[in-house]
Design a protein around this nucleic acid. Sequence first.
DNA 1: GCGTCAAGTAATGTGCACATTATGTCCGAC
DNA 2: GTCGGACATAATGTGCACATTACTTGACGC
Lengths: 242, 242
Amino acid sequence: MARPPRKAASRRRKGDVAADEAVYGAIRRAMHMGRLSPGAKLQEPVLARVLKVSRERVRKALHRLVHEGWLTAVPNRGTFVPALSVEEMRNIYDVRSMLEEGIVRRLSREASSIVAQRLRAHITEERAATRSGDRGRLFALSGEFHILLAELCGNDELSKLLRGLLTRSTMHFSLAAPERLHNCAGPHEHGDIVAAILDGKGERASKLMLSHLRGLVALQSARPPAKAVSLEEAFRGISAAR
Amino acid sequence: MARPPRKAASRRRKGDVAADEAVYGAIRRAMHMGRLSPGAKLQEPVLARVLKVSRERVRKALHRLVHEGWLTAVPNRGTFVPALSVEEMRNIYDVRSMLEEGIVRRLSREASSIVAQRLRAHITEERAATRSGDRGRLFALSGEFHILLAELCGNDELSKLLRGLLTRSTMHFSLAAPERLHNCAGPHEHGDIVAAILDGKGERASKLMLSHLRGLVALQSARPPAKAVSLEEAFRGISAAR
DNA sequence: GCGTCAAGTAATGTGCACATTATGTCCGAC
DNA sequence: GTCGGACATAATGTGCACATTACTTGACGC
């Protein structure tokens, strides 16, 4: 016979796959909002108490974040927010350059009407966000532009890879300059790239994208001195309830 | 006071970070040797018994492998060897093309004498392995060639990314055609690419690499019907002891 | 006064027991 | 004979208790 239940069916949900995602998202949000300074230590008991979940769930989320490159783990020491050197950052943008150069080249070669429509719609949204001064929206749109380009290639591997690189890039913007309006130099640069793509000018689009990315690297030079705050403060208003 | 030890210092090693790596490597080796067919289910209790480790350690290794793309996890179902579709494979090679095209272009532009030396040494090794008929060595060298190119660029992010893509590519060679001599069409193709790089012919090197990668995709067309074996047989001779 | 070392404390790491879920099997009804 | 459902079994998922390690505080010796 089957083992008799002891605690008589606790009210916990069945799948609970959403709980992992919630914890993961909460930590990710805190980083994206610039609440965690580079070098900060993410203690499991504290996070478990703040997010109202078990320590094992926090551990799992931290492991995932470490594996994705968001955090750095030191054995028997803990998990930390990485303080990326300028060289690491430059490397990320180098890889992005290679991929995104290929992306705009391909899109310039074979841009369908659907692609053109989605690109133009995105630029329109960016301009609207700029006019209305919606900082958060523009920040998100600026990043999504690069994701959109990758997705329009129809290659899932490509999208996934670039998404990882981009999140790590934009994280540094959040950490370095949360007060900045947007992570990309301006919507008009995106507009120029789109125009070149839709004109079939692959070379020009490629060059514009490369200089655009170079501009982003330059923006990262000045980094504020990163004030340290407690985890309780960092996660104020952020929960795993979602 | 501190909690008194109960079992009086078991003989387990201190760090035990090597144990995780050993389990991870054992599973990875089994896949690389073509012992696990696509669709095979990796059961935690079986692996724990075969590899002589705890189930939690197996779980951790499986989670890592899933996150790296080697395995696929279905909630409450288990972990499986993915049966990659031809489209997924084509996507991987597409991304590889973008990255490796940029790599050879860069190396052609700024190839130092050290780079030249290492490239020539690698080609020499490949030729020696071909002459002596050492299948395993040649197989490994063929893959490492692409890794070497990435590493010579001096970009850690690039190396790491390409390594992930390449292992997934070569895994399919192992799964699809373990009896094949090498995963690349031949060492002479690698030699031609190196020659073009060292001559500073970026365009030619780029075109050679692209056709080389296209050739690899073509090799994958014929896939044998994947006979199913038990995990005990698959891991015969493979242990976590290393 | 300063460096060194030892004990306490709180973190991380891990094995275990239990709950939950899916799968396979058998029996019965139609 | 086949379809449907309930039960048994074995897997996965998770919280908990404990071991181990690192850091901190304090005292002692030089």
